[in-house]
């Protein structure tokens, strides 16, 4: 059964750690880092552990939450999940009440990987350079 508004960490390549309540996420597949504001850290930790968006209603602005989740999905950090929603952590309301910064996630990709393409030999034969051969 699909539980709308429940998300999970998008892949095993997404790893994260928390520092005094502030989250840092690394996408191992491409070397991109993500830093969260204090409220963003609390919401990330809730959503990534399976708390539904509905459970956060009233604690954060609904439109801001929608936009924040959309960014996390766009960045490949979260994906919709079929798992049943998990209970709200006891400390989350207090963490959000104490937060001083708006919901935000920033991307740090200046040291991210370059994807290297061999331009001469890996082309679609009919098209030739520079059309890159698609994975079959």
């Amino acid at each position: 059964m699909h539980h709308s508004n429940v998300y999970a960490v998008a892949s095993k390549d997404i790893v994260f750690e928390s520092f005094d309540g502030e989250a840092v996420v690394l996408d191992l597949s491409n070397g991109k880092y993500f830093g969260f504001s204090d409220s963003g850290s609390a919401v990330w930790q809730a959503l990534s552990s399976g708390v539904s968006m509905q459970a956060l209603t009233g604690m954060v602005d609904a439109a801001a939450l929608e936009a924040f989740v959309a960014r996390l999905v766009e960045f490949g950090l979260l994906a919709p999940s079929d798992a049943p929603p998990q209970p709200l952590p006891d400390n989350l309301p207090a963490a959000l009440a104490a937060a001083k910064e708006p919901l935000n996630v920033s991307i740090h990709d200046d040291l991210a990987d370059l994807i290297i393409v061999d331009p001469i030999h890996e082309v679609e034969e009919p098209l030739g350079w520079p059309a890159v051969k698609q994975a079959s």
Binding site: D13, L28, S29, N30, G31, D113, I115, I116, V117, D118, H121, E122, V132, K133, A135
Partner: peptide, 12 residues
């Protein structure tokens, strides 16, 4: 040898 795949990712 040369690298012969279309894509190379450090992690892969």
């Amino acid at each position: 040898a040369h690298w012969g795949d279309a894509h190379f990712t450090e992690h892969g």
